[in-house]
C-alpha cells in the first residue's frame, strides 16, 4: 500500500490556460475545499507572478517532493523544473511547451518512485505541444508511454469519467464517429470492461463492480432491426465478461439507462462512443466531473475541463473540478496497491 501522508503531484499543464490560476485558488482556499496536500511541478517565479497579476495573496515556496506536505499549510509547494515559464494568460506560447511536458514526466517519475501518492494533471493544449515536437495523440497516451518505459510492461489506459451521480467509460474516444463501428470489437469491449472492473475493485473499493453496457444503436438495435452490432458484437462481449465472473448487463438502450432509477442499478456505464458517455455526465455533473485514467500502474486524475483560453487570467474559472480531481486522487490512491516502494 502507499504509505499514508504522501502528497499528490500536480502538473503545470498549459501555462496560458486556466490551470495556474485554479492551482493558486485551490491552494488559497485549501481549508474550505478540504483538499489533500499537493505540490505543483513548474516554475516558482511563474506562480508568484501569476498570483500578483491576479491580486491574490499566495506565498510560493520552492521545495522537494519530500518537503511538500510540511510546507502545504504555509505556502504553495512548487517543485521546480530548470525552465522558465513565461506564457501569458490566453496567449499560448510554444516556448512554454518543454516545461509542460517536463512537468508530466517528473510527476510520473515521482509517483512511480513513491514520492507522490497520485498524479493530477492540469489541462494541456495539444496544438501548442505539437508545435514543439510532441508526437503523442494525447495526454493519456503520453502517460501510458511513460508508464511502459518505467515498468517495461504494456499499459492499456481506460478513461473513466467519474462524478458522484454517474461514472462512465467510453470504449472508443477521440475518433470520427463514422469510424466507431469499425473500431468496435468484442475484444476491445471485453478488455475495457475487464480493466474497469478490476480497477473499480482495487482502487474504488467496490467489492463486485456492476457494469452496465450501452448498446451502440438506437434502442440497442432492437434485435438487429436497427443495426447488427449490438447483437453481434456488444452482446457477445457482455456474455464473455459474465463468463469471467464480472457483473455485466447489456446491451442497454442508451437513452433510458441514465436516469436516477436506472443509475441505481450499476456502478459504471460502458459506452460505445465519446458523446454517449459525455452527454449524460456533462448533463448531470457539468462542473464537478473528474477524469480518471484506469489501467495505469499509478493513479491519475484530471479535471474535466480544458484550457479555457477565453477566460484565462480573469479569475472566473470554476475550481470545482480540480478540487474533485485532487480529492478523488487522494481517496483512491490510499487503497491502491502500488509497484513503487517508498524510499
Amino acid at each position: 500500500m502507499i504509505p499514508a501522508g504522501l502528497p499528490v503531484a500536480l502538473t503545470l499543464g498549459e501555462p496560458a490556460g486556466i490551470g495556474p490560476e485554479l492551482t493558486l485558488d485551490v491552494w488559497r482556499r485549501r481549508g474550505e475545499f478540504e483538499v489533500p496536500p499537493f505540490y505543483v511541478i513548474g516554475d516558482p517565479d511563474f506562480y508568484r507572478a501569476r498570483a500578483a497579476a491576479l491580486g491574490i495573496d499566495v506565498p510560493v515556496k520552492t521545495v522537494t517532493a519530500a518537503q511538500a506536505v510540511e510546507t502545504f499549510d504555509r505556502a504553495l509547494p512548487v517543485v521546480p523544473l530548470d525552465m522558465n515559464v513565461t506564457a501569458q494568460p490566453g496567449k499560448p506560447d510554444a516556448s512554454s511547451a518543454p516545461a509542460a511536458i517536463s512537468s508530466i514526466r517528473r510527476a510520473v517519475a515521482d509517483v512511480m518512485a513513491g514520492r507522490a501518492s497520485a498524479l493530477v494533471t492540469n489541462p494541456i493544449a495539444k496544438n501548442v505541444l505539437y508545435r514543439s515536437g510532441f508526437a503523442e495523440p494525447g495526454h493519456t497516451e503520453f502517460l501510458a508511454k511513460l508508464a511502459e518505459e518505467a515498468t517495461g510492461r504494456k499499459a492499456q489506459p481506460v478513461m473513466l469519467l467519474w462524478s458522484p451521480e454517474l461514472a462512465v467509460v467510453p470504449v472508443t474516444i477521440h475518433l470520427p464517429l463514422k469510424d466507431v463501428v469499425s473500431r468496435l470489437s468484442k475484444e476491445l469491449i471485453v478488455e475495457t470492461g475487464r480493466i474497469t472492473a478490476r480497477d473499480l475493485h482495487d482502487r474504488f473499493g467496490i467489492v463486485r463492480p456492476r457494469l452496465a453496457i450501452a448498446g451502440l444503436n438506437p434502442h440497442a438495435g432492437e434485435n438487429g432491426s436497427l443495426g447488427e452490432e449490438d447483437r453481434d458484437i456488444v452482446a457477445p462481449a457482455v456474455a464473455a465478461l459474465r463468463a469471467e465472473g464480472i457483473d455485466a448487463v447489456g446491451p442497454l438502450p442508451a437513452d433510458t439507462m441514465f436516469h436516477a432509477r436506472a443509475r441505481a442499478s450499476y456502478d459504471v456505464a460502458l459506452c460505445m462512443y465519446h458523446d454517449q458517455a459525455l452527454i449524460p455526465i456533462k448533463t448531470l455533473a457539468f462542473d464537478h466531473g473528474v477524469n480518471v485514467t484506469l489501467g495505469l500502474p499509478f493513479v491519475r486524475t484530471s479535471p474535466d475541463h480544458g484550457t479555457a483560453f477565453d477566460i484565462a487570467g480573469t479569475g472566473k474559472a470554476d475550481p470545482s473540478s480540480l478540487v474533485a480531481a485532487l480529492a478523488l486522487a487522494a481517496r483512491i490512491s490510499a487503497r491502491t496497491p502500488t509497484l513503487a516502494t517508498a524510499t
Binding site: 437513452d255 458523446d275 449524460p280 448533463t283
Partner: peptide
C-alpha cells in the same frame, strides 16, 4: 444528428 444524441439528454433532463 442521430437518435440517442438528443434522447439521452432530453430523457435525463425530464423523464
Amino acid at each position: 444528428m442521430y437518435h440517442d444524441q438528443g434522447q439521452i439528454a432530453m430523457k435525463l433532463m425530464g423523464f
